[in-house]
Amino acid sequence: MTHTTDTVLVIILLSVLLSLGSSRLKALVETMALQGIMVSLVPILLDYGADGHVGGSLIFVQIMIVIKGVLIPGLLFTAARRMTIKREIEPIIGYHASLLAGLIMIMVSTLVTQRMHLTLPVGREMLLTTAITTLAAGLFLMMSRRKAITQVIGYLMLENGIYLVGTALTKQSHTLYVIEFGVLLDLLVGVMIMGIILNNINHAFDDVDTTYLGSLKD
């Protein structure tokens, strides 16, 4: 099933590039929903490829798809709809430059994966490359966009990347569903709280631009 896994990983990589280049908030949230679903599928595909049967992890994957693919994007949509957004994304670094940066990130992560000299199981190198790219692109998105909501999306992408690194590097035998579920719950509640703050920022400043959030300093 390596073939399917590779397809999924390529879709994740494309979603990263798409989110770096997108100028519409709605499209960005949709891309994140797609990415969330694809990321949730990766562990089950790896599992399937390894020993040919799918165990109890199936239920967990379903929960994860619901949270990452439906609930969190839904929350972001609600937050986005309530906002008075004048211009949509307002990048600090332009879209074309961001795309170029994304391509460079893919190259660097391929290089890093090769230089790490890990004896990874077959097919995991590609996964690790994807993971590092997603992680770096998430950080990049947080820093290069002015809107507070885009920073939340960047954070989600960072979290997706870290989850993929975890899947790529560690054996499945360490997986405890209580733990995985706790991490997911934290993420969900985190996005909810960020959504509430976003809403309040919008009320207080009539915008969600982070340049307004600069009055506290020394």
């Binding site: 947080m142 985190g190 703050i197 309040n200 009055s215 506290l216």
Partner: peptide
Amino acid sequence: KEALEATWKYVMICSV
């Protein structure tokens, strides 16, 4: 407004 800013920074910086 200041509390809002502080909360935003707190949640984002600590979460990352």
